[in-house]
Computed example of a mutant assay.
Amino acid sequence: MSDVAGGPEGSGAEPVYIGAMTLYPVPESVPRARRWFRKFADPHELVCSVDDCVLMISELVTNAVLYGEAEESWRVRVEWWRVGEALRVDVHNPGFPAQVRMRQGAADEAHGRGLRLVDALADSWSADPSYFGGTVVSFWVDEAWEP
């Protein structure tokens, strides 16, 4: 696992857009993103752990809500892509890619472990400039669908 881009897209498979949602940057958006992904996953017959995906989405949306910054009104956008047999999830926010980093949360801190969880559960992840402006943090699950 790493924070360097190079997930399944390096395999030559074209990404296929399969869904998205736009959320307000408020704490209530985190459970909404979890519920929406579970509904999304049902008809797509994922063979990977939906619970792991939900946890990673939850962590990335939480980070977007907590750390996204903009001078004007903004939204968090979550997108789902199929890349061959892999699932890629992108979470866009108006923050800066250089500020995305893993930290070591202290035992008594409520925050600080999100990217460590993503790093442990995803096959790969990255933080890059978003085509919407700001940052996109993405994770890949390599074997999300049957070959």
Rank of each mutant, 00 (worst) to 15 (best):
G68P: 00
C48A: 15
V30C: 10
P15Y: 12
R34V: 05
V54K: 02
G12C: 05
R34N: 09
R77E: 15
H44Q: 12
P8L: 11
V91W: 03
Y17I: 06
A13I: 09
R32F: 11
A86N: 06
S11H: 15
V65G: 14
R88N: 03
P43V: 11
A13L: 08
F96Q: 09
R101T: 09
F139R: 12
C53T: 04
E72V: 06
S124P: 11
P97T: 07
G12R: 11
L115W: 01
L46Q: 06
E59H: 05
E45H: 08
L46V: 07
C48L: 07
R38H: 10
E9T: 11
L55D: 08
V100S: 04
E85F: 09
L115H: 04
V30Q: 05
D142A: 11
A64F: 01
G7D: 04
A41F: 00
R75T: 12
K39N: 12
R75M: 14
V47I: 14
E69I: 15
L23Q: 02
R38W: 08
A5P: 02
L66P: 01
V137M: 06
R38Y: 04
V65N: 08
A110I: 11
D119A: 08
A20E: 13
V100P: 01
A107E: 13
R77Y: 03
G12D: 03
G134M: 05
P129Y: 15
P27S: 07
Q99T: 12
A41S: 12
R103S: 09
V76S: 02
A110K: 12
V26Q: 15
A20N: 09
F40A: 01
G105Y: 04
R101L: 13
H92V: 02
E146C: 13
V30M: 10
M56I: 09
R101P: 02
R101A: 06
S2D: 11
P94E: 14
W36A: 10
T62N: 11
A106P: 07
P31S: 13
A110G: 07
K39D: 07
N63W: 02
G7Q: 02
V54C: 06
V16Q: 10
D123V: 02
V47P: 01
V4N: 15
V16C: 11
C48T: 09
C48I: 15
D128N: 15
V50H: 03
E9I: 10
G105I: 00
W36M: 06
A20H: 12
V61M: 06
A120T: 14
E143C: 14
R116W: 02
W140L: 13
W145T: 01
R34Q: 13
R75I: 08
G10F: 13
